[in-house]
Simulated scan of single mutants.
Amino acid sequence: CNKCILFQGASKNLNLMEWDKLWSINKKIIDPVCPRHTAAVEERRVLLTLINGPEEPFSRIIPRHKKYEGAGEKCTTYTKRIWIEHADAESISVDEEITLMDWGNAIVKTIEKGQDGIITQLTGVLHLEGSVKTTKLKLTWLPETSELVNLTLVEFDYLITKKKVRAS
């Protein structure tokens, strides 16, 4: 990539660059234009019921990325029952105020666990007048609707596992 070459600079000396610099440069190129999607692993998602949430689902068109207009828009549905990642649910405490990305704040009131100690369900109340700046957790979420799309994610991890690749 041209940016990688410019970053490295012109030199007759052999110059080795670590891979994280390539990933960082790549992100700066892709981030402004790449659509973003939210997903939750079906077997490990946790239902959060918002007691004062909307009785009827409603939708809004919002930007895909707050900083980059070129990423386009998306339609987000707001419902009384939403899915969050299990790892996020594990980091929440009772009476903690959290931020639901692209919606606002909520306060978690109960955390239910199964016999195995794994969180199965949360209840909370929307607190939309709360400040996003005061919350520690800012969580992505999905509405509980029949419109969710099932997909299979294949993750390859790093194809190159060495910090620096040297020619032999």
Rank of each mutant, 00 (worst) to 15 (best):
S59C: 12
R36P: 06
N13F: 07
G9I: 13
K162R: 03
S91V: 05
L50Q: 09
I92E: 00
E55F: 05
E85T: 05
L22Q: 10
E144R: 04
T38A: 06
A71K: 14
L48I: 07
D20V: 09
A87Q: 12
A167T: 06
S11N: 13
E97G: 03
I25P: 02
A71L: 12
V41E: 05
I92H: 00
I92C: 02
N150F: 08
N15A: 12
G70T: 04
G72Q: 14
T120Q: 12
Y158F: 06
Q121A: 01
T145S: 15
P143I: 00
L139G: 03
T49H: 08
R166H: 06
T134Q: 13
A167E: 15
C1W: 02
K138I: 10
V33I: 15
Y78D: 06
E55T: 14
P54T: 02
L128T: 08
T99Q: 05
P32V: 04
E69P: 09
D88S: 08
C75S: 14
V149W: 08
R44I: 12
W23T: 11
L159R: 08
R44K: 10
T152A: 13
A89M: 01
E18F: 03
W103Y: 07
I25Q: 03
E97I: 14
G130L: 07
G9N: 11
L139Y: 00
P54W: 01
K74I: 10
S59N: 08
L100I: 03
S146E: 15
L137T: 04
T79C: 14
Q115N: 15
G130Y: 08
V108D: 02
N105C: 10
E42L: 12
P143N: 05
T77A: 10
A10P: 12
L126S: 11
W141Q: 02
V108Y: 02
D88Y: 00
E147M: 07
N150K: 15
Y78I: 09
W23M: 11
D20W: 07
L100D: 10
T49Q: 13
R45C: 13
L148V: 14
F156T: 15
I25L: 14
D88H: 07
T76K: 15
I118W: 06
W23Q: 15
N13G: 10
F58N: 09
R81T: 05
R64W: 01
N52Y: 14
W103N: 10
